[in-house]
């Protein structure tokens, strides 16, 4: 973490959100939001309910078209992308932005392993030459599939689901489903991973494991993580950088220690923030 914070230069910006505004009819869900997320960092977006956190994610991953604003992604290997101009699925396919959902969205009737292999669809599709090489059973496709399975195995191992690889995803316990969704998002080899409340519904032991998983993803995969979370033990424990939203506006932006003591944040959260702090301390 200290190494990551030390190399905070302008060059390692991964995602630049500039003047993002999202309006639904008369409702201003996000109002002129700007922040930067960096590689090797966990950036958390927090705020009271209805602050517009998930709307930010939906703009980033193409489910909404922002009313105003620029979302610049500097892919470490591929160059710059302007996400607000890209079609939804291309953001994951080309710009390598992975995400999970607040209400888990797995493929419930398919097995755990299949969920992870579908995440590698585009690479396998290329290898199968629009299913032709696959239909003919060419070696080219078989090799690619084997590689996909190996990658899936790696992530199954990381989230402790190897023993349940052949279970239907919908039959997994809740905590396993959360971890599987993160593993699935990692299988698209993202440069930016957006996690929407990954600790929701987890017990304390599970959320501790989640912390370790996220830290290891950040350190080993060298990607940026964008995190929406209500669980302050997760947010304060692993964030390198926190952005606080309230009613669509950014009210604070800085490292955990700064945000924790920011009077505007405490005011926005009222009793809630103080409770969270008390539990933390």
């Amino acid at each position: 973490m200290s190494a990551a914070t030390m190399i905070q230069t302008a060059d390692d910006a991964l995602l630049d959100v500039e003047h993002l505004t999202m309006r639904f009819g008369g409702l201003l869900a996000i109002d002129d939001l700007s922040f930067t997320a960096r590689v090797h960092e966990i950036t958390s977006i927090i705020g009271p309910n209805g602050a517009g956190k998930t709307t930010v994610f939906n703009c980033l991953t193409g489910f909404y078209k922002p009313t105003v604003g620029r979302l610049r992604l500097c892919h470490p290997d591929k160059g710059e992308y302007y996400l607000e101009r890209m079609e939804g699925f291309r953001i994951a396919q080309v710009a390598d932005v992975g995400r999970t959902f607040q209400n888990i969205r797995l493929f419930p009737k398919m097995t755990v392993l299949e969920n992870l292999i579908i995440a590698q669809h585009n690479r396998l599709m290329k290898a199968s030459v629009f299913a032709l090489a696959g239909l003919l059973g060419l070696a080219r496709y078989r090799v690619a599939e084997k590689a996909a399975v190996e990658k899936a195995k790696f992530w199954l191992d990381r989230v402790n689901l190897t023993a349940r690889a052949d279970w239907e995803a919908g039959n997994l316990p809740y905590g396993d489903q959360r971890r599987l969704e993160i593993a699935r998002a990692m299988c698209i080899a993202p440069c930016l991973l957006c996690l929407d409340e990954p600790a929701a519904g987890l017990n304390p032991r599970e959320s501790l494991e989640l912390n370790e998983l996220l830290l290891s993803i950040r350190d080993e995969q060298g990607i940026g993580i964008l995190l929406i979370e209500h669980d302050m033990s997760v947010v304060m424990g692993i964030s390198d950088h926190i952005v606080v939203l309230d009613h669509g506006r950014k009210i604070s932006d800085g490292d955990p220690a700064f945000v924790r003591n920011d009077p505007t944040v405490i005011r926005a959260y009222l009793g809630e923030a103080e409770d969270g702090e008390g539990a933390d301390a």
Binding site: T61, G62, F63, G88, F89, R90, I91, A92, Q93, V94, G98, R99, F101, R105, L106, F107, P108, K109, M110, I118, A119, H121, N122, R184, A185, I188
Partner: peptide, 14 residues
């Protein structure tokens, strides 16, 4: 996968 969840498909770049 499309039968199961179209939104999840899009989030995976399909």
């Amino acid at each position: 996968a499309l039968r199961e969840d179209e939104i999840a498909c899009r989030s995976l770049g399909i």
